[in-house]
Amino acid sequence: MQQIIYFFQKFKYFLFFLFLEFIALTLIFNNLNFHKSKFINSANAITGGFYTKLANTSEYLHLKEDNQHLSEENKHLKNLLEQHKIVSSKDSIAIDSTLFFQKSVYSQAKIINNNYSKPFNFLTINKGKNQGVDKEMAIVNHKGIIGITESTSNNYTRVQSILNLNSEINARLKGKTSYYGTLKWDSKDYNIVQLHDIPRQAPLKIGDTIETGGKSTIFPEGIPIGSILKINQGNTAENKVDIQLFNDMSNLRYVYVVKNLDKIEIKSLENGTNE
């Protein structure tokens, strides 16, 4: 008994050190797990409030640029609207049947904290459970995809950026063919992501556009991602294509949260068939 007490006396600092290191290690491992990252993240009231204040003060510096983006997007959307306008005579009732097939709802949010220089990057946005944001929703902006919501607090949400080694997103070649692959990031350059496992027979050309494939319940179909920068020649084991992102991930402010309206139905169907 005395020896045990002596042992604790002698190594008390070391044991305390080990204890704290163990806590830190647990937090590190939990943080890397998409479904367990609850404790240490920037989506809580204190850090969220801090970053909101910071974002509010720095936002004035970018007003001109943001207005430019908005007007560009408006132009793009107006052109899209113009293509779908049908000239109808006044005495017939126009029924917009596409409304019944609405798949997703967009809501806007602001990025208050952005990381892009680490292997596992996260963003924080200023909308949370109170505003209807839940986990596993898509975050996009007018140029392309940004990430997937991961954990939410009442007013803030942490987003797993596409610049995260854990991120895997279904993507396809834009055009008539629908060859698809998985979008990952190798943590080297924040402007370049990699498209894996795209079939060899897919007609790839440098400069072709890559968009989301719509094979997941998170991202809607056809949101732009980037253009092909480099194609691996020869017979390598992995068929990997470098993609230059349309988004400048180091310079993001306003984003849209996309909610998939069919998600619950699709999930319950998939779970039902698995049983």
Binding site: E21, L27, N30, L32, R158
Partner: peptide, 15 residues
């Protein structure tokens, strides 16, 4: 760590 979303990495190395 709270502010930079890094789990407990800073805590581990600082300790």
């Amino acid at each position: 760590d709270f502010f930079s979303d890094s789990g407990g990495i800073h805590a581990f190395s600082t300790l």
